[in-house]
Amino acid sequence: MANTLQSRKRVRQIESRTAVNKARRSRIRTFIRKVEEAIASGDKDAASAALRAAQPELMRGVTRGVFHRNTAARKISRLSARIKAMG
């Protein structure tokens, strides 16, 4: 357990930051899930619209430190490839 004042404060800061990051990650996953559901339904227009909405959210997660930039780029690339393959 944390003993010094500084380490106790760090524990409190980490807890609050973890909650914020968890909410951000959940929000981004929701956007990604909407894209995948649109792809599964076969609606290319809805899927591309959902991807356009998801891209800035993913990149915002990168700037906030929730995701690594290569992870976000990989997810966007794979989703766009799946939409493109829908024909």
Rank of each mutant, 00 (worst) to 15 (best):
M1N: 12
M1E: 11
M1G: 11
A2N: 10
T4P: 05
Q6D: 14
Q6F: 10
S7H: 05
K9E: 13
R10F: 03
R12E: 15
Q13K: 07
Q13N: 09
Q13A: 13
I14G: 04
I14S: 13
I14L: 13
E15R: 13
S16T: 15
R17C: 02
T18G: 08
T18Y: 09
A19E: 12
A23N: 12
R25K: 13
S26D: 05
R27K: 13
R27L: 07
I28E: 00
I28R: 00
R29N: 04
F31K: 12
F31W: 08
R33W: 02
A38Q: 01
I39L: 04
G42D: 10
D43P: 01
K44P: 02
K44L: 03
D45C: 03
A47L: 05
A47G: 08
A47I: 00
S48K: 11
S48R: 12
S48D: 03
A49D: 06
A49L: 05
A50P: 01
A50D: 00
L51K: 01
R52K: 10
Q55K: 12
Q55Y: 05
E57C: 09
M59K: 04
R60D: 08
T63K: 12
G65N: 01
R69T: 12
N70M: 10
A72Q: 04
A72V: 06
R74N: 15
K75P: 06
S80A: 14
S80E: 11
S80Q: 14
A81Y: 05
A85R: 14
A85M: 12
G87W: 02
